[in-house]
Design a binder for these strands. Structure first.
Lengths: 259, 259
DNA sequence: CATGATTATGATATATTTTAACACATCCTG
DNA sequence: CAGGATGTGTTAAAATATATCATAATCATG
């Protein structure tokens, strides 16, 4: 027997992860809710959906990743490996608006982000896609031109986009840090963008591996005055440590902590 | 935090496909039903179970065997997707502003894009990253909320972003096409976005494999009146073909062409 | 084509489950 | 110790699911 209505519902089921009964009732005003319930039962029998309160979840979108729990355990073990990002993840607060910088450093934070109601905003498409997989967090992608070399979104539109949103916590990673120039990057529009973020954020956290220390690049996006926390993988040279202390910046050296 | 009760429930979840709340209440008479409900919610967040009426279904036992019937069909289509996108790539004009829709169909166009001075704008982070690798093209990413399930960027900000740019050529792919409803998708904000694109573009090209024919989803983003070219992988049914002809739409059937 | 069987559907009252809101205790951290 | 996060319990109200019966449509088959 061929049933046009069910075919339509099947298409819907293939196009999104959840269909509510209300939705179906609007879509098919000619049939009773009872019939639509029976349709859902039918799809459940066919293993194409799972009946849940209020509607049905599409099988197509159900990820049977039992590995999840296992990877969760592993997180604790890898802890020391990606220690900088793992440490940074501890600063995330549920419900907050959090900016995630682009670049390989911040991409590694994803495994340490708990499945909670954060709102992330990022200029890094790779991070965005990864953050999305976590589940609960809302992920915003900054709009603008995608820079081929740095895989980061910048430009006029990006600037404008950021001006429109609020940021509680910003996680940033510079290309260089020196006493004279502060936190620097090699690209003007990237710098401009980070400046806006620093200005807007209530809590600015810098993630930086030791290779960036005492390097300086052309564009300074902030100094110790503007930041709250600095997470590194080695002790800071005296001059920088003094500057941090002067400005009340909390310095976390993960190498030290993991000893 | 370590929770003995949840560990026990987890074991249960790994040992059978469904747990009822009653069962859990008998098992843990010391805690309230509410707590057990919250436990189930927790497992749902962790993707270890799905909350259903009366209890929870264990992920471990959920057979995503829908693959058999449905993905089998999709595989057939994949073969055609490449011919469709290859054909669509021929419409690209150097120097133009081109919108690339999100979705698996359009992602496949990247290999066929020549290394020329195009300006692409897309709602698909995956396509954006791929397009970037080509070299010469400028790639814009639409800003906004990244939808977890469809991996597409939509929302208010996306709408606003698109309003600010010009589009010469739009490549779009619907979830359904029917004579009554036109070109449809299953999601409101996606629809809204596509509508704007259709309105702005000088040349609208629809890419559609045959599985979408005679399907209709809740939201119509355009009809034959609004489009210029339709590329498919099989002949259109008479009714649709007539509609296309009526509206001067050029229909390209790659199956026919490749014979 | 008539007929009985099967299937699809609708209406409604009832039963059950779920949610939401608040209150309280506990634990941890700075 | 204050403040925050977290885990928990209680309840009433809301939403949803089920069961049942009645009716209509469909279909195979003698």
């Amino acid at each position: 027997m061929y049933n046009e209505r069910r075919e339509q519902i099947r298409s819907l089921l293939l196009s999104k992860p959840f269909i509510s009964l209300k939705e179906l009732e609007e879509m098919f005003p000619d049939v009773s809710g009872m019939t639509l319930r029976r349709d859902i039962e039918y799809f459940e029998r066919e293993h194409e959906a799972i009946k849940v309160r209020g509607g049905a979840r599409s099988m197509k979108f159900i990820t049977t990743q039992t590995d999840d729990s296992i990877t969760a355990r592993m997180k604790e073990n890898i802890h020391w490996k990606d220690s900088i990002t793992a440490r940074a993840a501890e600063f995330l607060e549920t419900g907050r608006s959090i900016f995630i910088d682009s670049g390989s450093t911040l991409q590694r934070i994803v495994p340490y982000v708990p499945n909670d109601r954060f709102t992330f905003t990022t200029t890094d498409p790779v991070s965005a896609l990864e953050l999305c997989k976590i589940g609960l967090p809302i992920v915003n992608v900054v709009g603008g031109r995608l820079d081929r070399d740095n895989q980061t979104i910048t430009g006029l539109q990006a600037t404008r986009f950021l001006s429109d949103i609020n940021i509680d916590i910003a996680l940033l990673s510079p290309s260089g840090l020196s006493a004279r120039s502060g936190f620097t990057v090699g690209n003007y529009s990237e710098c401009e963008l980070k400046r806006i973020v620093v200005e807007k954020a209530r809590l600015v956290i810098i993630l930086m591996d030791s290779s960036k220390i005492d390097k300086s690049l052309p564009y300074t996006f902030c100094t110790f005055e503007n930041i709250d926390v600095l997470i590194t993988s080695s002790a800071l040279p005296e001059e920088l440590a003094a500057l941090a202390a002067e400005n009340g910046v909390r310095v976390i050296n993960v190498e030290e902590e993991n000893k």
